[in-house]
């Protein structure tokens, strides 16, 4: 299993917002045991999807000079029982960001309808990173080939 809960980044606006998508398929590894008589996407996976995508916006906004690790989530709603076979549109926004940490919010829509939301997420920043490694990973993971980066 690859622990990646977005398939692509559709748009990103430095220091402001990001949008991406994740298609949930019946071949997801976690569905083997969640559950055996019905395949239901686990609620926490949506949290991970929102956290991963917004995390990349933070890293991108800091020019890949830091990484971001979730330290708090609050007021989160997730759909408890969705069967795979849908594309989740993931949206994230930065409320504030500093060298030390970031605060944001995120939500997920399916066919235009909000199915999950996270009104508050705080990330702690990690500064021991290799910016080039992060940049390479981001290009690969996001599918974006023409990311403008002022410090590139």
């Amino acid at each position: 299993m690859r622990f990646l809960y977005y398939d692509r980044v559709d748009s990103l606006d430095k220091n402001v917002k990001i949008a991406g998508a994740k298609t949930f398929t019946l071949s997801e590894e976690f569905l083997r045991s969640h559950f055996r008589k019905q395949a239901l996407v686990p609620g926490v996976i949506y949290i991970e999807a929102m956290a991963q995508l917004l995390g990349w916006l933070i890293i991108y906004s800091h020019d890949f000079n830091l990484s971001a690790v979730m330290s708090l989530v609050e007021d989160v709603k997730v759909p408890p029982a969705l069967r795979p076979g849908f594309t989740a549109e993931i949206h994230g926004e930065i409320i504030s960001t500093s060298r030390r940490d970031s605060l944001g919010r995120a939500w997920i829509t399916i066919d235009g309808e909000v199915v999950a939301s996270m009104n508050r997420i705080i990330y702690s920043h990690v500064h021991k990173v290799n910016p080039q490694d992060l940049r390479d990973l981001f290009y690969y993971y996001s599918g974006i080939r023409t990311v403008s980066s002022e410090n590139a």
């Binding site: 686990p42 979730m70 330290s71 708090l72 609050e74 007021d75 989160v76 709603k77 997730v78 759909p79």
Partner: peptide, 16 residues
């Protein structure tokens, strides 16, 4: 019965 999560009021993560 089994439990399905639908809301997180608050979750704090400390260290690793």
């Amino acid at each position: 019965s089994w439990f399905l999560i639908s809301r997180v009021r608050k979750s704090n993560f400390y260290g690793f």
